[in-house]
Amino acid sequence: MSLVISHLARRFGATPVLRGIELEVRQGELIALLGPSGSGKTTLLRIIAGLDWPDAGGLSFDGTDWLAKSAAERRIGFVFQHYALFPHMTVRDNIAFGLTVLPRATRPGQAQIAATVDRLLRFLQIDGLADRYPAELSGGQRQRVALGRAMAIEPRVLLLDEPFGALDAQVRRDLRRWLRGVHDSTGTTTIFVTHDQEEAFELADRVVVMNGGVVEQIGHPDEIYDHPATPFVARFLGLTVELPIAMRAGRAEASGLDLSALPRRAIPDGPATLFLRPADIQPVPDPAAPFRVTEIASTGALLRIVAESDTGCRIEAEVSRREGRDLRVGHAVGLRPAAGQIFPGGATPLARPASAPKALKEARP
């Protein structure tokens, strides 16, 4: 049972928000929609949930057209960033809410609802909080209650919109590991929205990188981190150093750079752009090199080193304090990148054009 999104488009007034989204989510997958604010992540999530409708394209689950079904008919579990718990209800009543408002024909009996809630309280490790109200809970506890409420209806798909955005860093890290464990235990198909790269890479089976209403890249977290497919993905994932280079017989060349560690690339001869992470650049003392150290700043564990050439090329590198202890401002250095991504040509466009979406054939319900 897969969720299939095809040529999905949405605009608000004259502004396109989604431009031909193509995505298939397999049963039991945990997918992260990753991208900056305004990339269309939450709009896509709301369309899947039935809280918004596209202007064009298709959305189906297990072969059934979900655009012909209401939000209630889709049986979606939705967890919001700010919990959206009912303040006048106890934890137990909040979790039970989705079951109590089901149509009479499908609504479980009171005993079955109570048993389901008790099971979820134990599973989510909040059984000692059953009779408390949301105001008496910490942020992490509230988020667990919100997840329990979404899971109570046994959703076909679980959606989470920035689920940890309102929590402090340590609680976020703890809840990420906990949520991955919950997902592995239940096998529920899950899609979550985040702008936090660490969160997406730690939690997701696959990451969908979005920008300006298009999907830039889909893949396993390690694949995307090591091999960004577009200049936008490279920049977004921290490859902030961009250098003009030349390609010859599949090898990258540039004055003052030792690029021997980079593998051969199937890129035509000619100008290209090399994208690097500062942490992947090693400054090497070399009196004949064209770069000179102009700044050194310590962050505790790391040294941030800025090197500039006579031509005005400025590169920032990060090394451990041990590796940089012999470097001084004014030293001549060569630069040795350990890894990087190369795109042909000197220009590096931020995004690719989206394919034209097809119009919806049927009226919205």
Rank of each mutant, 00 (worst) to 15 (best):
N94L: 11
F12N: 11
V157N: 09
G77Y: 11
A249W: 00
D196G: 06
P231G: 08
E295A: 14
L129F: 06
G38S: 12
G140R: 08
R321M: 13
S355R: 15
G219H: 07
D310G: 14
A252D: 01
L137P: 01
E253D: 10
A317M: 15
G140F: 06
R177H: 12
V214H: 02
L8H: 03
G57K: 05
G270C: 15
G334I: 08
D93Y: 06
T294C: 09
D310F: 03
S2K: 06
D127A: 15
M210S: 05
G256C: 08
I267L: 08
R156V: 07
E202S: 10
A261C: 04
F291T: 05
T194C: 05
P228N: 06
R265G: 00
G346F: 02
A266H: 09
F78M: 07
T230R: 13
L124E: 03
R19E: 10
L159A: 09
M151F: 01
R292G: 01
A249H: 04
G346E: 07
T273L: 10
L160V: 13
A111W: 06
Q143D: 01
Q282R: 13
E136T: 03
S320M: 14
R119N: 08
L34S: 00
G256L: 11
I224C: 03
Q143M: 04
A72W: 06
G187L: 11
P155D: 12
F80N: 12
A272P: 02
P134G: 13
L124M: 11
F12K: 13
L121A: 14
P54W: 11
F232C: 10
A84R: 13
R304Q: 11
E24R: 14
S185L: 05
D62H: 09
L45E: 04
S37C: 07
P16A: 15
P290R: 12
L335H: 02
A169T: 10
L203Y: 01
L237C: 05
L257F: 15
D286T: 10
S6G: 06
Q27H: 14
L45C: 09
L3K: 04
R352T: 09
E253N: 09
D222E: 15
G140W: 05
P344I: 13
A14G: 02
T194Y: 04
F232R: 10
L262H: 01
A84K: 11
D127C: 06
D62R: 12
A234H: 00
R173Y: 00
D55G: 14
Q112W: 05
R11V: 02
V4G: 01
F97W: 12
P87F: 12
A338E: 12
A246V: 14
E22S: 03
Q110V: 13
P263T: 13
R104S: 11
R328M: 12
L327R: 09
G340Y: 00
L158Y: 13
L129I: 08
I296P: 00
L167G: 00
I153D: 00
L179W: 00
E202D: 07
G128L: 15
S260W: 03
Q341H: 02
M210A: 04
P228I: 08
A169K: 14
S6P: 00
I245N: 07
S320W: 09
D118E: 14
V182K: 04
E316C: 11
A114Q: 14
E22R: 03
R336V: 10
T100H: 05
R104Y: 08
V25R: 03
L3Q: 02
T294I: 13
Q125D: 14
A204T: 03
A338D: 07
G213L: 12
R142A: 02
L121I: 15
T116Y: 04
T42P: 00
G340V: 02
E73S: 09
